[in-house]
Structures are given as structure tokens and as C-alpha cells.
Design a binder for these strands. Sequence first.
DNA 1: ATGCAACTCCGGAGTATCAC
DNA 2: GTGATACTCCGGAGTTGCAT
Length: 247
Amino acid sequence: MDDIVRQAVARAIETMQGNLGERLTIDDLARAAMFSKFHFTRIFLRATGLSPGRFLSALRVAEAKRLLATTATSVADISHQVGYNSVGTFSARFSGSVGLSPTGYRQHCGLPDRLPERTGQPESAAGVRGRLWFPPVLQRGPVFVGLFPARIAEGAPARYAVVPGDGHYALTSVPVGSWYVIACAYGVFDDRGPRALTGLSGPVTVHREVTAHLADVRLRPRHRFDPPVLLALPELWPAPARRAVAV
DNA sequence: ATGCAACTCCGGAGTATCAC
DNA sequence: GTGATACTCCGGAGTTGCAT
């Protein structure tokens, strides 16, 4: 990815973040990035793993999560603040992405006890396992590892596990299909304090007749081109560090 | 790198239902 | 009664594949 493309994508993301409550179109974003809308969509997808529309939706849901967790604003007001004109649409999109309804998210402080796993796909005897590579840190914490159909932690994972930060994970009885392995860790500290790490591997294509799939994941600090984690994740960090890290 | 056409799917609007 | 959620339908914005 060259600098011009990097800057264009960064400009588009800044435009999204600064105008979450406005009605933004691909044309607006393409203009901000100084590309045609067709070409812009392609370079954006290559840079972030998501189309501009889906990235913008993800930013809106992430902002709604923040407002629900940190303010007493009503769900209706929050839906308007993040750019939805219909509370019904907002509630449905939020529930689909986060795994909890807006009020459920607020009640649980964004920390569900257990996540529902994706149903509907045929099960297999296959497992997906691998090694988790950490950057140099002072203290490792638990890591969420989940299987998702796209390069964003959204909706019910096909399978997931929360593993200690000792470097390995294993997921069993994985449904047949093509899955991205997404890992997130928040209880990780380096000399500057708590850090949010993320990692992605795949897609891993799970067949019925193959029983073991290997997918190592390299964890790294979150980058501004990474789509936000929308799924409400189980407890991943010790209480004192809670909310100290931007998710 | 860019444009076009066809198709997909997201969001708006309306309504019903439920919980408090 | 009020607010939140669930559901359906439809139009159009956005995505994708192909051509240049």
C-alpha cells in the first residue's frame, strides 16, 4: 500500500469519525479521499478488510456502545446521535452486531457472561488451533479468539474461546465453512500501560473430512485502519484496567 | 486507475408486541 | 402511557465483476 492510498484511506476514516451523525455517502468519502467512488471502494476494502459502508456502520455501532456505557442518554437519542433516523433499525443493527440489545448492553456494562455461537451451518469434527504470537510486553492477559465469517468481530462467532496468554488456542467442533480467526487482548501491559492488541488469520476453510486446521495469529497493537470490535466480549481484563483501553 | 452495469443488501418507515 | 425491541417491505445506495 503506497502513501497516497494510505493517506486517502486515513482521510476517509477521519471524515467518517468526524461526521458519524451525518448522512455520508460513498461519493462524499471518495471526494474526501480524492478518488472515484469505484476505485475508492476497492482501495478502502484492500486497506481495511471492510467496504466503506460497513466500516462506517461499524464506527457508528462502536460509538453507540461508548455512549451506552458512559452516559444515561436514551437509546432513541443515541440512535440519532450516531446517524440512524429509525430507532427500530438501530436496535436491530446493534443487536445483530454486538450480540446484546442496546439496553441489554447497558445493563451488562458490555460484559456478557457467555456468548451465543453461530448456528445454522453443518457441524464438523474439525478443530482449529494455533499459536498466539505476542509483541514484547511486560504482562500478558487473557485472549479472546473467535471464528467469524468476515474480517470484523461482529455477530455470533462460529466458535470462540478465552484462553490465558500462554500462547496457544484450540477450537473444537468447528462448523463447515470459511472463517477468519480474530484474536483480541486488552489485559496486556507494556512500559506505557495497558494496551489493546488484535490479530487476524485466515480465512481458514473447514471441510468435513479434514480434522485439524492450523492458524497461528500474530497479535499487534490496534491500528487506525482496523475496524472496531463490535461484539460484546466476555471479561478480558482485570477490574482496575477496565475501560482504560479504547476498544 | 477508472468507468459501467447488474446485482446485493442496508436502512427507513410503519406496525405489533412486550416490559415496566 | 412510554420506551424498547422485533419484524416486514421497499427503494436506493453501495458493491462487485468485467471492460477499457
